[in-house]
Each structure stands twice: as C-alpha cells, then as structure tokens.
Design a protein around this nucleic acid. Structure first.
Lengths: 222, 222
DNA sequence: CCAAAAGTGTTCCGTCTACACCCATGG
DNA sequence: CCATGGGTGTAGACGGAACACTTTTGG
C-alpha cells in the first residue's frame, strides 16, 4: 500500500438505491425500515458501503442484487450527496443510483427478508437523512430520460398493452396523455411491435399485447 | 466520535473541477500539470480532497476559489467517479463539478502560480486518470442545460454583442446556427436587453451591446 | 470604394394538439 | 343489453428551418 495522500482524511463512501417499480398504474418506490443505527426504524432507501475492491457502480449493482436477486438491471447514477452532517455521527458521502425493475420479476421471498415494501410515490413517508432529496432528483432525471431513452421496458413485463405503456408514461410524467396522440407517437418510433397475443384480463373486448423490439431510439423525443 | 460503522473501509473523497471559459469564439478548458505524485507532470483537471468539515459542494467551491480567486460561480455536479483503480495506488472516489467562468474576470496572476492554462476544447491533450471521461460528461451536460438554463451569462462579460452570444451557443452545441433564427429565438425569450452602447472593436459598422436581464427562463427550450 | 460584420422577414413544412365515436365482449 | 375498456382519423395551430439582401464604416 502506497501512501501518497497520508494526512488527508478519509470518509465512508456509500451507495443508495432509488428503486422504482410500476404496478396498478402507479409508480412505486421500494423502501425499508433501517435496520441499523443510526436512524434505526426510519423509512430509508436501500444502501450499502462501497468495498475496497469494487467500483462505486459495482457496489450499487451488488446492493441491488442482494436486495432483489436481480442482475443487469437498468441503473443510473443520480448524484453524490455529501453534506457534512447528512449521516448523524459519521462522515458518509453517498452516491445515489436510480434503478428500474419489473415488479413481476421480483422475488417475493426477499420482501420479508429485507422488510422491503413498495410504497406509492405520492404517499411517501418521511425518509431518513437526505433520502427524500435523492428520490426527488431521481424522479426529475426519470422525467428527462423517458423522452430520450427506452426506459419503460425496464418497468413493464415482456408483453404489455398499449394502455399499460401509456400509464407508465403518465405515471412518470405526472400528467395524462391523449390516447390517440400517444399511440401515434409510439407507432411512429418503432419502439414496440404487436404480437398475436391478446390480453383479456383488463378488458372484456381484449387488448393486443405488444413487446419492445430492441431498436434503440437515437435522438428521438418521446 | 461515534463508531457506528467500525470495520467498514473508508476512501479518500476528492472533487475535480471542469472549468470552462469562452474566448476567441472557442470553448476553453482550464488545465494544469499535476504537481504531485502520482501522475506528476500529466495534464489534469484541478481538484482537491474533501475536508471533514465541509460538504462536497463546498469543497468544489473552495478548490475553484483557490484556483481562480472567484466565488459564487456557476457550478454543477457532473457525477461521481469511482473505479477501483482510477487513482494509481490509493482508493480515491472523485466527484466532478463543472464550472463556467468569464475569462475576463480571471485573475491572471493566478495563471502562473498554479501553472494553469486555457486549452482549446478540440485540442485536448491526454489527461490524467479518468479526467477525460469527466470532461466528456460535462460537455454532454452543458449541451443539455444550455437549452433550459441561462448558463451563457456565466461565460460572457456583462456586455456583449448578439454575435458573441451566438458564438457561445455554437461552441457549446458544436454546430453553426442561422443568424436570423437565432436572434428571433433570443428575442422571443426575453433573455437579454439592448443597451445604448455600441461595440466597435469587432466590426467597422459597430454592433449593439446587450446585457442579460435577470429573468430566468422557466421551461423554455433554447 | 470595398471588405467585413451587423442587421432584418417571409415562406414552407412538419409536428403537436385537440377532439368523438364505434367496437367487441363478459357478465 | 349495457358497462367497460380498446381502438381509430382529421383539421387547425404552432414552431422550427431555410433562405438573401441592405447597411455602415474603417482602412
């Protein structure tokens, strides 16, 4: 071990995961009650410390994996949070990551192990430390990226109806969208393709199921 | 000092500043040669370690102040960089910040003290560690934010011609813009106001000098 | 007198928006 | 048979893009 910077103070470096899911036409956030001091019992994002032999990105993926059993999820850095007293007692700099998961893929056994809950985004409880700021920033980023990146495919199951897709857009943007205009836009980018399957669960008539085709959209706006 | 997290490893936390200026119709980046090991002599962004009694944001402002003598500059977090071996020898997580400064305000005595140089953005030398990635991400952010935030007022002197303003946009966006369309857009948002002053330096005929009025643009697109 | 930069409008085209009715079916 | 959600087209408004000539004056 070299000692180039001896005398310089170090800090704990953590990651916190803002995990979004989509269910019942609502955006949900995965929260848990903190199981360690300080802040035991408060609602909190899932997080963990960055190990010495993993990058910060890897730490975020690891934490998410430990929580959900899922790998290769959409994850994106939200930002570093470094107020002096953001953690009571110790100096912890935390790097927030936003993740999108398909709730249907989530291993439900893990709910109880981690005391995880899906909380409705517009009924958030008070959160530990600066976690609320992290969530707000993540939502703001989501709203921007939904216009240029195909992030919805991380939230929906493999097959879905156009109405479901529209609901995802509406939940993220926080506004309702005209059905005909929405379908026109979606069809003009060739983001999805129709399948032969029909969903009869949510409607009597039945709705065509679509899937994402893996074209990327380049420079497309919504 | 409490010891909630004893056993957890710590890391050095640093900030690095991507400092943009505008001169001679070009975007410039302030670089220096590293004056410490490791990497002594390599081209590098300016950075420093985060102290225990300052937030990460404050550390970034402090580093910028030490370098330029300027306070209250536009600064924006670019992101955290946390590869395991991004710093040779020690584990350093660095948080990059983008700053915009008016080159005319810069105290030129400080150039030599810090061996700072303004380097043309499209002739960047190889940079230390992951600093090039930081720069690329900062440029990408700049391109996005110029459409929604009045960042140009951080790059131009208090009084400027519309042609200068257009050159800033062109330099950041990396493409040329139609003069008439540009002026129409700028006038439709009321971003700037005409003054009685006339600049006779760059043209024989003389160009009207404008200044920013401090309206912010809310939700405006370019 | 001419080179060099400032300044100024119009037309066209594509995109976004608003808007309402019929369809299929399970219960 | 009716309630429920699925599916479809058009017209008007708006904003962005293309485009060229006149003005002023220092040298």
């Amino acid at each position: 071990m070299t000692t180039y910077y001896s005398g310089t103070p170090k800090a704990y470096v953590a990651v916190d995961c803002i995990i979004f899911g989509f269910d019942n036409n609502k955006l949900k956030l995965m929260l848990g009650k903190r199981q360690m001091d300080p802040g035991r019992g408060e609602w909190s994002l899932y997080g963990g410390f960055v190990g010495m032999h993993e990058s910060v990105d890897e730490a975020a993926h690891r934490v998410l994996y430990e929580l959900t059993g899922l790998k290769n999820l959409y994850m994106r850095q939200v930002g570093a949070f470094g107020a002096v007293d953001r953690d009571p007692g110790e100096r912890v700099v935390s790097i927030a990551y936003c993740a999108l998961i398909k709730i249907s893929d989530y291993d439900h056994q893990l709910y109880e192990e981690h005391a995880a809950e899906w909380v409705d985004l517009d009924h958030l409880p008070p959160l530990y430390s600066d976690h609320q700021q992290m969530v707000l920033k993540a939502i703001s980023l989501l709203r921007k990226s939904i216009k240029t990146e195909p992030i919805t495919n991380s939230l929906l199951p493999d097959y879905f109806t156009l109405t479901q897709l529209q609901h995802v857009y509406e939940a993220i943007l926080g506004e309702s969208i005209d059905k005909r205009n929405f379908r026109k836009r979606i069809m003009s980018i060739d983001l999805v393709e129709k399948t032969e399957m029909i969903d009869k669960i949510t409607s009597k008539r039945g709705a065509a199921l679509y899937r994402f085709n893996n074209n990327r959209y380049e420079g497309v706006r919504l």
